[in-house]
Design a protein around this nucleic acid. Structure first.
Lengths: 189, 189
DNA sequence: TAATTTGCCTAATCTTCCTAGGCAAATTAA
DNA sequence: TTAATTTGCCTAGGAAGATTAGGCAAATTA
């Protein structure tokens, strides 16, 4: 029965929830069918392949994340903006680990160009408006920020920092301090 | 025939090569059997599960990486050591993308504790000897370095920085400069 | 109301994972 | 030197996921 309307929206939404529950790698068309109480073949009338489902979950995650970042960034500048951006990332990853993993999926160039990934890049750059960096240093800084946030979040999520003092909350806050200081005094080559 | 001696060594070695060729996610016991020209069941006399193969590839990668880092770090200190460490990471990932991906596999606590991951942690900390950081800042810095290196390498590997100027070589070098500067002037809370 | 589309299903094929049990060569024991 | 055992790999087969082909009935459109 599936209570009418097996729309792509619902598919992807349910897929995202599944990802958060069992991990993005474990997302399977079969399991999704089970949860939606339909047969696998029914899903294939909407989905091209199982990879297709994963890609759509990734796109959803990128959108959600970009929306949150945009909201958090509004009206903020400098370190405030930096911290807001960083916290959105980290919080999203903790709230939705499966979606966050999905957001890291390698998209083919076309898909990537049409995704919210573009907004992410723009917003990261926007943070730097509060600092006096000119090209090409701005690009270097954008890449550094991306690396730190992504690296930290995925290490933390993977338990890389667990069971050791001091707690990760401390570290996170000190890293933000450090990045702020670094951006304010970006070293010449 | 498999030319005698289907040892665990050869299994894991071939698995690592397979990973580098097709990607760690795509490593499959079946494909490995095909390449070694034996039947799947033969591999299961050595491997507990297919996850077991992946874990062993991960452990191999961690060892290799730790060995390279150790070699690179010998006789170096300060920024020299920092750059050497970072470059080993990045080069290894580019040379062996599948193994690098394997090294990120979440190991269960027991396995992790017995792995070369421990050496990695020690060596990262060793880099900081050249800088005047005391606990808990040293730990914060270790985590920052881990985040940056891992984050940068995985973004670069995933094509996250591609097709945009300036080239990643430039950025990498400027990021190392920046980290060095940051460690030399680590900001107080 | 006839033609078509929509939405979901049954059935079947392929691939991978994994287990049981077998057999022959190599090794060890008597 | 023969008998017992171990080693190394194999044949068979069952489970689960991916994917395709084709069907049927309700909803929509002509």
């Amino acid at each position: 029965m599936a209570s009418e309307g097996l729309t792509m929206e619902r598919l992807v939404q349910a897929g995202a929830e599944l990802a958060d529950e069992v991990g993005f790698e474990q997302v399977t068309v079969s399991e999704l069918a089970r949860r939606l109480d339909v047969k696998v073949a029914s899903l294939y009338s909407r989905l091209k392949t199982s990879q297709d489902l994963k890609t759509k979950i990734a796109l959803l995650a990128l959108e959600e994340l970009a929306d949150r970042v945009a909201a958090a960034l509004a009206g903020r500048a400098g370190k405030d903006a930096l911290a807001a951006f960083a916290n959105v990332y980290r919080d999203y990853a903790r709230e939705h680990p499966g979606r966050y993993a999905a957001a890291q999926l390698r998209l083919d160039p076309k898909t990537a160009a049409a995704s919210a990934g573009v907004r992410h890049a723009q917003m990261t750059r926007a943070i730097l408006r509060g600092y006096e960096l000119t090209e090409p240093d701005q690009t270097h800084a954008v890449r550094l920020l991306g690396s730190v946030f992504h690296g930290y979040v995925s290490l933390e999520l993977g338990g890389g920092f667990s069971h050791s003092a001091p707690d990760t909350e401390q570290t996170w806050s000190r890293i933000l301090d450090a990045l702020d200081a670094l951006l304010r005094h970006w070293p010449a080559p």
